[in-house]
């Protein structure tokens, strides 16, 4: 249970490179993707569907970078991701 240290690190680092706001939504709960502590406390299980919500000037670039991370599968995670972009 829970997102592991390594993917949480990569997620928050990647999101942190961009100016836009990045939120992860899980079960109606939404947390800041730039905060590793928030990601760790998210309590997502493997296979959980997570939504990414990106808002801001470089939203598309951020989304691309994050999607790439998920597609590469980090190391162990196989979370499916659904994305939604608002600008």
């Amino acid at each position: 249970m829970g997102i592991h240290m390594r993917p949480a690190d990569l997620l928050s680092r990647t999101a942190g490179r961009f100016e836009c706001q990045v939120l992860i939504e899980n079960n109606g709960q939404s947390i800041d993707c730039k905060s590793i502590m928030s990601i760790l406390t998210l309590g997502a299980r493997q296979g959980t569907q997570l939504n990414l919500r990106v808002t801001g000037p470089d939203a598309q670039q951020a989304l691309d970078a994050l999607c790439e991370l998920f597609e590469q599968g980090f190391d162990e995670s196989d979370s499916e991701v659904a994305t939604e972009q608002t600008s």
Binding site: M5, R6, A8, D9, S12, R13, D32, K34, S35, I36, M37, S38
Partner: peptide, 16 residues
């Protein structure tokens, strides 16, 4: 090294 990388990320977490 990845462990320390994650620790560093925790340390720099603006929520904290």
């Amino acid at each position: 090294g990845a462990i320390f990388s994650a620790h560093q990320q925790l340390l720099l977490d603006t929520t904290l």
